[in-house]
């Protein structure tokens, strides 16, 4: 349901990358999306053309790379695959695990056309929590 809002945020970022590189058009966008991000790839794919209409990314191809769900077990110190609603260690069964992969919601790359400067991606990711 919130995928359109996320696509609009995506288009804003793509517009910034394109404008930083003086590109007139974006023909491809690649995302990394994990199942624990709360975002459904199929719905993103449906929402993308709507959000992209009238932007530099109109007509661009959206590619979504699904990130695997992987957990790190604090007690037996092994990494294993897990299910989205069962993030327990596959090796010893302990639930005190740490998510290593699976909650990604990341813009990996964009394909720019007619760019006139060296690639510049914008701000690095930053997050702070007290």
């Amino acid at each position: 349901m919130h995928e359109l809002a996320i696509c609009q945020a995506l288009i804003d970022q793509v517009e910034t990358v394109a404008s930083n590189n003086r590109a007139t058009r974006v023909s491809g966008v690649t995302l990394d999306v994990g199942p624990l991000s709360g975002v459904v790839p199929e719905l993103l794919l449906n929402a993308f053309p709507v959000a992209a209409a009238g932007s530099v990314a109109e007509g661009a191809i959206l590619t979504i790379e699904a990130a695997p769900v992987r957990v790190w077990c604090k007690s037996c110190e092994t990494e294993s695959d897990a299910k989205i609603n069962r993030l327990v260690c596959a090796s010893c069964g302990d639930w005190r695990t740490e998510l290593r992969s699976g909650d990604e919601l990341m813009l990996r790359s964009v394909v720019l056309e007619d760019a006139t400067s060296t690639p510049h991606a914008g701000q690095p990711e930053e997050k702070q929590r007290v």
């Binding site: 945020a9 790359s109 720019l112 991606a121 990711e125």
Partner: peptide, 21 residues
Amino acid sequence: RELAEGKQATQVLGNLLQVND
């Protein structure tokens, strides 16, 4: 191919919800 055709793949690696965050 994309580079050869004058296209440029730019790596971003940015959080999609950066503006919200």
